[in-house]
Design a protein around this nucleic acid. Sequence first.
DNA 1: CGAGATTTGTGCGTATGTATT
DNA 2: AAATACATACGCACAAATCTC
Lengths: 136, 136
Amino acid sequence: MITPQPGGAVYRQLAELLRQEILSGRLQPGQKLPSETTLVQRYGIARETARRAVAVLRAEGIVGVVRGHGVVVREQPTIQDLTPTSGSTITARMPTADERAELEVPEGVPVIAVVAPDGGVEVYPAHRWRLRWPSS
Amino acid sequence: MITPQPGGAVYRQLAELLRQEILSGRLQPGQKLPSETTLVQRYGIARETARRAVAVLRAEGIVGVVRGHGVVVREQPTIQDLTPTSGSTITARMPTADERAELEVPEGVPVIAVVAPDGGVEVYPAHRWRLRWPSS
DNA sequence: CGAGATTTGTGCGTATGTATT
DNA sequence: AAATACATACGCACAAATCTC
């Protein structure tokens, strides 16, 4: 049973608890988290509270949700390298709803926006791309 | 009165409505959004639903909440340029809870992580920093 | 193919706590 | 002190997606 503490709301405590399950490896990528109903019974909390805890992990991008199936620990996707042209400006931000759909960006994952000197903009999901700064 | 549509839940419709208010400039940075109570009365919805709509905008990083005051359209902070050392690797992701507090990263704002060739890691809030690729 | 169980999504209501004005 | 506004937590009901048999 989790009870409200001065330092942390119940849903934050539960989120931290689940986060540690994942980071410690007790919950592996691809595995499902306990269902909302299970969390409700196990910790004696309301469903809203359990959902809020899961929402925290979703916002952090470490779990994904499949409706009618469950909450799954996210796989670490293959990272590809990206080297912009000289004179580019790079920013990171959360995607718009359109970009999320277009680029298949999961919840809680930002995008990398590369603005070339000619003004052209390219957007990359940050969970699959990283930038390499040339060694010279 | 907003009613559920096949295409969109009520809270999503309301989020889109508020988003347009902001993007169109009718709600300027620094201005407050209508309070939850106002939204409830104006659109004939439950408070939970109104909160959920606001939560969408918070996750997108376009509004911030000041407890006891209201929900405020976020200012566009001054952007500073950042040029990593040669051979660095740069990734973007959502911050951990600790980083959020440490770096004062608002909700819905990713961080830029720069890994130098020597392994040292530096983390920058993406709403205040961008990368400049030297023109050479 | 369908039926039912499971699981998350959405919406509503209520109550109380905390921070600001 | 009082009013305002968001935060947290509980409850209920039905919808929609997925899976199993």
